[in-house]
């Protein structure tokens, strides 16, 4: 228990000292993960809605594959993105490797299947509940998708938060494509990994507590926004 107490005081000291480096690391972690979730939402939500409503041969195979991709190992995604972005790779000329941009790409790849698969389930359930009604109104398909996503917007927040949780917590992918460069690509998780390597377990645990607090704050903000929206829309 000594370690936990030391970790707690490390966390307090870091926060109380308004440590500029810590602030930059938290900001980078938040920025990268939120950007990845935004990209994943733009791709994943329409894809999920399409898969919920469309009927085509081989659809079941696609659904199983999509669900399986939720379990993508971050290290594998990191390696694949690394190979693509390396100067010896096909996208090497963009010079993205070891930059925050590379980290956003890797996390977006990780999060898109989660948002698409959970979003598909959500839209499928809504379709079951309201589908007949919408169909009887003769609404065109695109409008239907839009209406269903809008109706399910409160549940969609939970879908996005699941994606954000995955992105903020992973270390394997950002370590490989970001390189854990101090002041440039060091995130909360890679910093925790580094402190563990140094054997400074109290500092590592302290950073872990701060990461948990940041993730909790994002979830709290989403919850408050949802409650507010519900109140406004009656």
């Amino acid at each position: 228990m000594f370690d936990l107490a030391a970790a707690f005081s490390s966390a307090i000291a870091l926060i109380a000292g308004l440590d500029a480096e810590l602030f930059a690391i938290v900001r980078l972690s938040l920025g990268v993960s939120l950007a990845a979730v935004a990209i994943a939402a733009v791709i994943g939500l329409p894809l999920g809605a399409f898969l919920a409503l469309a009927r085509f041969p081989g659809r079941e195979v696609v659904l199983v594959a999509l669900n399986a991709l939720m379990g993508l190992p971050p290290v594998v995604v990191g390696l694949a993105v690394y190979v693509l972005l390396s100067r010896a790779g096909p996208l090497g000329s963009f010079g993205l490797l070891f930059t925050p941009g590379a980290m956003v790409i890797a996390q977006a790849v990780l999060v898109t299947p989660i948002i698409a698969a959970l979003g598909r389930q959500l839209v499928a359930d809504l379709w079951e509940a309201y589908g007949e009604q919408l169909r009887s109104l003769g609404a065109p398909r695109l409008r239907v998708i839009g209406t269903l996503l809008w109706d399910g917007r409160h549940s969609l927040i939970t879908v996005l938060l699941a994606g954000f949780g995955r992105a903020a917590a992973e270390v394997g992918a950002v370590m490989i494509v970001g390189g854990n460069i101090k002041g440039l690509t060091r995130t909360m998780t890679t910093a925790i990994s580094l402190e563990t390597s140094k054997g400074d377990l109290a500092m590592a645990l302290g950073l872990g507590m701060i990461l948990l607090a940041v993730v909790a704050a994002v979830n709290g903000a989403a919850f408050a926004a949802g409650a507010w929206a519900r109140r406004v829309s009656g």
Partner: peptide, 27 residues
């Protein structure tokens, strides 16, 4: 807003060298 967050980390100097090194020297 996210782009602004990402674009301004400290250390984003105009000139830089990428050095691959060992964990022993870093740690």
């Amino acid at each position: 807003l996210l782009c602004a967050l990402l674009a301004s980390p400290a250390g984003a100097a105009d000139r830089f060298v990428v050095l691959a090194s060992t964990t022993s020297t870093e740690q």
